[in-house]
């Protein structure tokens, strides 16, 4: 909870609104997985973004002038694409942090068949190997370079 409060203190209400909109545009709900703007996901994403305040705040100020909220969804994505190159650092940091939080969340991991929140302690059952695959190699004579003194 303390992390969420910290993030709330980092960004203003209007900045949080832009970040939420960007999350929705980047990863909307689909294929049985939630949107990055889902409150559960935002709880993990916003604290990560708060640690990159110095990089993100200037970009948010520019995005605020675009009035993204007044545009249709397709226009919003198009406008973001126009700005991705000009503000590469902002978008690299934003995308990296969103991905690291989104694809580490238990809801997302579970939907992908991955142990949540971590591989340990459950581990995975890897299928038994059919070692008859090796038959063509087993028939081969030793071919490493054997030296006279070491045979």
């Amino acid at each position: 909870m303390s992390d969420i409060l910290a993030s709330d203190n980092t960004y203003t209400e209007s900045e949080r609104a832009i970040l939420t909109l960007l999350c929705e545009l980047m990863i909307p709900a689909g294929n049985g997985r939630p949107s990055a703007a889902d409150p559960e996901l935002l709880n993990d994403i916003l604290p990560r973004l708060s640690t990159h305040e110095s990089v993100l705040k200037p970009g948010l100020a520019i995005l605020a002038t675009l009035s993204l909220e007044k545009l249709a969804a397709s226009e919003q994505v198009a406008l973001i694409h126009q700005h991705r190159e000009a503000h590469a650092t902002f978008f690299q940091v934003f995308e990296s942090q969103v991905i690291q939080a989104y694809y580490a969340h238990s809801i997302v991991l579970t939907s992908l068949g991955v142990n949540a929140p971590s591989p340990y302690p459950q581990g995975y059952d890897v299928q038994e190997t059919d070692w008859s695959l090796l038959d063509p190699v087993r028939g081969r004579e030793p071919f490493y370079r054997q030296l006279e003194t070491e045979e």
Partner: peptide, 27 residues
């Protein structure tokens, strides 16, 4: 790699778009 590594790599290689195609591309 795991999901996050796959997504980061995909984004860096331009293979993981924003928007409605994101999940299909990830899969």
């Amino acid at each position: 790699g795991g999901p996050a590594g796959t997504a980061l790599n995909g984004m860096a290689m331009g293979m993981l778009p924003w928007g409605s195609e994101h999940h299909t591309a990830f899969d």
